[in-house]
């Protein structure tokens, strides 16, 4: 059965010992679209993103209940192959975290982890994805110098290339431009618009204008709850709730 919603979330609760982080989340995320999760800082957007590829496993203090279907597979079932689930997703975090190795190896790492051993294939793919994020020309003469020497904008694009190289279906981006200058941000945004023909993008942001520029589908969250979701037109032109109206008014 072909399902147009690549991710479906049902009754997702995330709590710690003392507080509720996500409360009764029900969502559908459409395939090959940019879905923007919008909301003020600390409303649980990042945690929601981490639930999607079970990075919540790294935080033993989080208790997760509910269902998350990705391609019709409930990823919180105990017998799920977590590695396979994570391979479907590329992650772009708030600040770039280059792996402690060279530029080349940063992109090659994921390929090697997927069992590709042929040097030639790896070389080709590294070049291809560095070109795809517009970084190849800038780094082709210093592929083997440490990734940490790049500027922060370049690092973020490297992280995008590294995520794309493993050929995911979904790209999870957690405020990917919040640490970047306007020009680097613009490059990333333009890239996102190109990418949506091949990938599903889930973008977390608190920047209203960015949401307006990119979104096909908007989810507005506040204090761990989904307040409204819908098309950009519905959300930005005809907000139903007071909270959202307030947010849009005071928004950035």
């Amino acid at each position: 059965m072909y399902n147009n919603d690549i991710i479906r979330i049902e009754n997702l609760h995330v709590t710690t010992a003392t507080q509720v982080i996500l409360k009764d989340i029900n969502l559908k995320i459409p395939r090959n679209r940019i879905t923007v999760i919008l909301g003020p800082s600390g409303c649980g957007k990042t945690t929601l993103l981490k639930c999607l590829n079970r990075l919540t496993d790294l935080h033993p203090q989080l208790q997760v209940s509910g269902k998350v279907w990705i391609d019709d597979e409930d990823i919180f079932q105990p017998n799920v192959d977590v590695i396979a689930v994570r391979k479907k997703m590329g992650l772009l975090s708030q600040r770039p975290y280059p792996l402690p190795m060279s530029i080349y190896q940063n992109v090659a790492y994921g390929l090697k982890m997927q069992g590709i051993a042929d040097k030639h294939t790896i070389r080709e793919r590294v070049q291809h994805y560095l070109e795809e994020v517009g970084l190849w020309k800038e780094v082709k003469d210093r592929l083997h110098s440490p990734a940490s020497k790049l500027s922060i904008g370049q690092q973020q694009r490297l992280c995008l290339a590294r995520g794309l190289a493993v050929q995911p279906e979904i790209i999870l981006a957690d405020e990917p431009t919040s640490a970047l200058d306007p020009i680097s941000s613009k490059k990333i945004e333009e890239k996102f618009l190109e990418l949506k023909s091949d990938y599903t993008l889930v973008l977390v942001t608190h920047i209203l204008r960015q949401a307006k520029r990119l979104a096909d589908h908007v989810i507005f969250m506040y204090l761990g709850e989904v307040i409204e979701q819908g098309t950009p037109q519905e959300i930005f032109e005809h907000p139903q709730t007071t909270i959202l109206r307030e947010y849009l008014k005071s928004g950035h």
């Binding site: 990075l55 994570r86 391979k87 992650l91 792996l99 790492y109 982890m113 997927q114 995520g163």
Partner: peptide, 20 residues
């Protein structure tokens, strides 16, 4: 976050420890 990066690139937990 470094661990998260490596895991989301499809590395196992042990590979993450070893390589990253």
């Amino acid at each position: 976050e470094l661990k998260e990066v490596s895991l989301s690139l499809g590395a196992t937990y042990w590979e993450t420890i070893k390589h990253v």
